[in-house]
Amino acid sequence: MKSSTRHILRTARVLCWLVLLGCIPGCGDRTSGMDASTSGPQVRIVSLSPALSQILMDLGHQELIVGCTPWAPAGLERVPVVGDLLRPDLERISAVRPDLILVQPTQLGVDPGLAQLAAQRGWAIRSWTLNRLEDIEVVLEELPESLRVAGVDPAPMLSSIQQWRKRRDLLLVPDPKVEALGETVVLFGIDPPMAFGRETYLNDLLESLGGLNAIRAPGYLESSLEDLVVLAPRSVVILATSPGSALEQAAQLRTMLGASAEGLDIHAIDGADLLVPGTRLLDGVQRFRARLEERP
């Protein structure tokens, strides 16, 4: 065998070993070393819902989360990603050894594979829908109890919830500035216009502030520019994940509507907190009201 061939084979062998070493847990990415530790929180929670993660964090139990979705709120960057609502990664979930899994189910319910595995391994699954404002209240009622059963002291949580409720009662009252908006369409996208209809948490928020949703159909609706013109709302509120994006979309909507936008009051709102049905909604409401106060 020629020396060059031998050299190539040796190099290939070394590369193979390197690849094999790379497959050993702990040598790779953020998710690979997650089953290495034996110590950890008293209750190990996997949250497959960014909104439920947010609520848990706001209740002061961020440290219990051992697995989350790629779209978890800021603060969970070092927590392993274990899939998401639609595609839970069962292997990764097994690796973080959860006691409790929090799910915001889709129309199809909880993923059957996850439910089956949870039944086999003895993991508890708690699922809550978060379509309405009252659903958040249900989570705040039931989550402390779920954690108490798992051995977590609920007292600090109950105190946080009390404070949240007080703040809610102060903030969610009829506001003349919101009432002055008149019939309003709340959009979370403009091309095509995506609107919050009735029976959504944002409709509940708007109504509690004294506003009136121009959309009468329930749910999240894809409409058209023509629908917007026909509905003839007095105001349009555009929610986006950043102030820049909201302003940009407002300008774009005005351009697309052309002459029909005359007389239409378009509000661009930084809606990052309003687009997640969790406890941070109140921050979003506060920002929304402050934004309206700024306008003459």
Binding site: R216, E226, D227
Partner: peptide
């Protein structure tokens, strides 16, 4: 052809 909203939320 267009559509107009009705009170019950349908078009």
């Amino acid at each position: 052809v267009g559509r107009v909203p009705l009170e019950d939320g349908t078009w």
